[in-house]
Amino acid sequence: MAHMRNKAESAGRATKVKTKHKELGLTREKLLDMYEKMLLPRMISERMWRMLRQGKLLFVVSSEGHEATGVGTAYALNMGSDYIVHYYRDLSVVLAAGMTVKDVMLQVFGKADDPSGGGRELPGLFCSSKLRLVSTSSPIAVQLPHAAGIALASKIKGEKIVTITYFGDGATSKGDFHEALNFAGIHKLPVIFVCENNKYAISVPQSKQMAIENVADRAPGYGFPGVVVDGNDVLEVYRAAKEAVERARNGLGPTLIEAKTYRYAPHTSNDDGVRYRTQEEIEEWKKKDPIEKFKQYLKEHGILSEALEKEIRAKLEQQIDEAVDFADKAPLPKPEDALTHVYAEPRR
């Protein structure tokens, strides 16, 4: 099976692990950019939880732990032309796609100038037609058929554009998962399905979600490869995504990537996050933290120093400060703004 082959390959590569990034064609600049793109959503998430406690935010959904999965996959795309169909666990994807920190803050604050939708959706659901970040929603798995449809349209139009979509392990139980993958397989659509398997759907563990160990094992049943990757290893995620994107772009059809990862935070701010798992388990996963892991790698290869790391953090901290300040002061929507964009507004 495809993911087994992939595992075997990774094992074989262990000896020349030191040149992994070169093998992937990633320069020093790109690696540092990737690192920054992982660090930024982490720092934003931490800030959001703080603002929730301060009463500045009403709701938080975050994805500390998912950063390598998000950035590793997003980095394989042509930003601005490929379509991204995300879900609420994808702040890292959204930022990598080009959303600014200000745009993110306007969204989570529900402000009038929120470019994703003027404060209509819950924090964590972003949208930009300019960035080809597709409008998405709260119901689980509904975005998978959309991704298939977007890819279908690209194929019909003869454009070499790929579509990537993200979802959790819980989403794989829904009919929309099956319907979308089945259709994508039939038509060899240029779409990449990324399952961010963090072992839980709110409280329900994987063992009660499915009787198998790997979601990726289902892919052959749809006629395309499934790949299991360490979702906490950004370079391995990137490797898998790059291959999948190439396959899709060359007309070879979809790939299902299962990134094994973990979320440290509660499901959302409405969950305590510990009824269904132990603090020890959370701590165990923190030892495998994707940002730490990548930092180690970069240090080993002389790409990142403590000083540079500090510099990057300070820069991001400042960006976040400015964005928070900006969004905090930005005007709220007018109440009657709730009435617009129900249908196309008549041209005046």
Partner: peptide, 28 residues
């Protein structure tokens, strides 16, 4: 066959894929 698509027996997909195709510029 590209513009007249016999779909699998899957109503959510039929509408869901139409939605995606519409967001990508087609008129399904």
């Amino acid at each position: 066959e590209e513009r007249v698509i016999d779909t699998p027996l899957a109503e959510s997909l039929i509408v869901g894929a139409a939605i995606g195709a519409a967001m990508n510029g087609l008129k399904p």
